[in-house]
């Protein structure tokens, strides 16, 4: 966790590199200007095994992914994508596509274990206010994999939306956080008061913060600025 935070600072606008460098790390810059595994043309029927999309244009980010899986080895042979969003959203999808397909492809179960922190680490950090982009890539991938499970009849493997366990100690899920936000939780403190989330398992704090922001935007989008 502390290592990630250190990385975040390096890439932030208000860093010591400000003025000299770019607002993102060199890796983010590279993936933004030279995105890998983009799918520019619509795919032919049967070209991919599944696709999935997440986000909304109102929120400023939409990610779509297409995957090709080797059914025997369960390795992800191809992950193609398109993203509407800021520089870090584009770079995040690009690096994620590399992470799951490099060295002959990652196994589905392993790929599902990639955390937003892991994506950020590969990117050389993201500015703190951009961390949610890495959460989105993670979500887009899960949606895509779920569609794959559905298409291949592996219903028991589908990860039901909102049941992803966020806090292992207390078994708190995304859905719990969503509900807390709907009941008026606005800050991490509010969430901790309600759910005691992240207290026993503080490795999840980053993800909790992003979920909080995500659901706040989803349900109350821009309400902080309501005037």
């Amino acid at each position: 966790m502390s290592k990630n935070i250190k990385n975040l600072k390096i890439a932030d606008v208000i860093s010591k590199t400000a003025g000299k460098g770019w607002i993102y790390s060199d890796i983010v810059k590279d993936h933004f200007f030279h995105p890998r595994n983009l799918l520019l043309k619509n795919p032919k029927t049967g070209e991919f095994d599944a696709e999935g999309q997440i986000g909304a244009p109102q929120c400023g980010d939409v990610m779509r992914m297409w995957i090709k899986v080797d059914p025997k080895t369960e390795k992800i042979k191809k992950l193609k994508w398109r993203t509407f969003g800021c520089g870090s959203a584009i770079a995040t999808t690009s690096i994620f596509s590399v992470m799951v397909t490099e060295r002959g492809g990652m196994k589905i179960d392993k790929a599902l274990k990639i955390r937003p922190q892991d994506i950020m680490k590969r990117l050389g950090g993201l500015p703190a206010r951009k961390v949610h982009c890495s959460v989105l890539a993670d979500k887009a991938f899960r949606t895509t994999i779920n569609n794959y499970f559905r298409k291949t009849g592996q219903y028991q493997r589908i990860i039901t939306e909102g049941t992803k366990i966020i806090d292992k100690t207390l078994n708190i899920t995304e859905r719990d956080i969503e509900e807390a936000v709907l009941e008026g939780a606005e800050t991490i403190n509010d969430l901790q008061k309600r759910l005691k989330v992240g207290i026993g398992d503080n490795s999840s704090l980053l993800e909790i913060e992003q979920l909080l922001r995500f659901y706040k935007e989803k349900y109350y989008g821009g309400s902080e600025n309501r005037i």
């Binding site: 520019l40 244009p57 939409v62 398109r82 993203t83």
Partner: peptide
């Protein structure tokens, strides 16, 4: 626009 999956 080419890399965007949506059209509003």
């Amino acid at each position: 626009r080419e890399i965007s999956p949506i059209t509003v």
